[in-house]
Design a protein around this nucleic acid. Structure first.
Lengths: 342, 342
DNA sequence: GTTAGCACTCTAAGCCAGTGAGTGCTAACA
DNA sequence: TGTTAGCACTCACTGGCTTAGAGTGCTAAC
């Protein structure tokens, strides 16, 4: 079906288009890429490629532009693996190493770094945060009748809430510590959902059995459950939104608006980040389910560093984005990252 | 200088322009606003207004558009006070009441709510977070040699850091609690800067005096100081970026880019939010120091609710923004907000 | 001081022809 | 049979030209 030459030509078209964003004609290819055949031959091949759906002509007598199908073939079969420069690799590595202990900082720096390296827009989130389980609960008095609640999850992430507990007015550090220990013992290992189910319609007696004043326990457990399971709780880290406006395909204000809008819609972004079974997944143009992003391509990846899963990340750019570069950056991100010895 | 009629005319021009974004001519004013004089008279008055610099003509034979100076006069002297509808006031009130306990949630909801109410872009931050003082320190073991550090500040805000303390490997809850108490006793009341100064070049002996292993105390104090004082620590809450792209003045891609870029630059935003001596301050067009925002107007306010200062907020829109509406929303925000009784 | 009338200005929109890049097809060539 | 040269054709884009419409400034009359 696709002979070697056709693939060469498709590759040339894609490479040129990634760079110029202009439809590209047979003569240009003949001149710029040394394929050893004339523009007429290339013209014939391009005609075939168009018939097969790998490229399209924006209008009857213009050059050709890769189609989604063309990009798909390129990404799946043709695209070369690229290596980062030492400088780039080092930059990425440092961004990661300096924040390995704290998920929120890591996500923030990672999306910033990748956005800087690629010049595309980056979105990251720990969408699994909704399913973390309680490992430790710590209650600390903050002010009269106001308490800070700190949750440590099985993923070693920390969340906190400040909440009023008028019934616990006067409760000091020691008592708060005792309640903390009690709660940790009872609730440890549970996820937000489980908490919810567990405590729907509980009786006061139940709380008494737990040796905790129900007027204190009930709002506390509600707060814990809310902090753990609410979707509000998933923090989205966006970086490089401005970059997307620099691409000529978004000079069209409608499209620019659609994208900026999509980048502000948390639910949509979570769905977008959630849906990836593979480690690195490329979604091209209309393949995207989010209609506001069908003029874009998205490269999603799991953030897995040193065997540990931190969350998901997506790089968003025009369909003519530099897939090869982005994929190589994401591969690099998943490397083993260790402090240098000595 | 400015007689009553001139002011009426200026007001008419501004009101019309806020709505239509089109230059407005004498005949239109004569028809739409019942000033009891002919278009020729209005023409003469407009000629005067132009000479005085309150309005400008984009080109020789077009209608007039308010100048920055015109808006300034309007904002300072002419603009009517408006009342929110009950629905709007209630919406704002609920957004505030439901999050009064926790600064981060409050800022987030507030900027979202105001952006929804006004259809402009909103930015909020607690820029004073860099100067908060320590009220309570809580250290909790998370994993072997890894600890969660929770700081409660004098403003009842909570910050946390996760950090490795290899030297404290094996330290359990009880010991961690003791260290927490010790640190709270020593460092309570200090700001991040003070901590920094206090512990530059301290000797090991000093830590021994504090009854804490120096290998543990040093990184802990460094983390505390970093968490309190770093500028990274100021969280920016942005909402409604898409809105700004809906205004025809930003159909010009250059301007759209400038703004979206400015909204991603944390330092710039902090400067912007920081500089306001008054409770509500209007910055019009070129008055703005940030060159990227000189095509915009910005209305800044202190977030002061129930006598408590939470941070700063800024509403960003085109220079023809609806100053009156935004100011009334911000005034409403500062009301006394209490739960209804019964 | 106000108004009607009029000539003038300038933009935006529509139209048209010319240009150039690119195509598809055909016929000749190796 | 695959490749190439040649040629007619298509179509977007550009620049010049015209027209319509909104608005101004000025003058003279009320």
């Amino acid at each position: 079906m696709l002979n070697r030459r056709k693939i060469k030509i498709l590759e040339a078209i894609i490479n040129d288009y990634i760079e110029s964003a202009e439809p590209i004609g047979s003569r240009t290819i003949a001149r710029k890429y040394d394929l050893g055949v004339s523009s007429a031959t290339i013209r014939n091949e391009m005609s075939d490629l168009e018939e097969m759906g790998y490229i399209v002509a924006p209008h009857a007598s213009s050059g050709r532009v890769p189609s989604d199908k063309g990009y798909r073939l390129y990404v799946d079969e043709v695209m070369p693996k690229r290596r980062l420069t030492n400088q780039q690799a080092e930059f990425l590595k440092q961004s990661i190493l300096q924040n390995l202990n704290q998920v929120d900082l890591l996500m923030h720096e990672l999306s910033r770094a990748i956005s800087l390296l690629t010049n595309y827009t980056t979105v990251a989130a720990d969408i699994m945060a909704q399913r973390h389980k309680i490992k430790h609960i710590q209650l600390v008095p903050v002010d009269d009748g106001i308490f800070a609640l700190m949750l440590i999850t099985d993923q070693n992430t920390v969340k906190n809430r400040v909440l009023p507990l008028p019934e616990a007015s006067g409760v000091g550090l020691t008592t708060a510590a005792r309640i903390s220990a009690e709660l940790t013992r009872i609730l440890g290992g549970a996820s937000g959902d489980e908490l919810n189910n567990l405590f729907i319609g509980v009786t006061e007696q139940r709380f008494m059995d737990l040796h905790i004043n129900p007027d204190i326990a009930a709002p506390l457990i509600a707060a814990i459950s809310e902090a753990l399971s609410s979707a509000d709780n998933v923090q989205i880290y966006t970086s490089g939104v401005k970059n997307i406006l620099d691409f000529p395909e978004f000079a069209n204000l409608e499209k620019a608006r659609a994208i900026v809008g999509a980048l502000e819609e948390k639910d949509g972004l979570i769905t977008l980040l959630a849906d990836n079974s593979e480690d690195i997944q490329v979604v091209i143009g209309a393949e995207n389910e989010n209609t506001m992003l069908q003029d874009c391509s998205i490269i999603k990846a799991k953030i897995r560093i040193n065997e540990h899963f931190f969350g998901n990340i997506a790089i968003i750019g025009p369909t003519r984005m530099d897939y090869s570069q982005v994929v190589s950056v994401l591969r690099n991100m998943a490397f083993e990252h260790k402090e240098e010895e000595g």
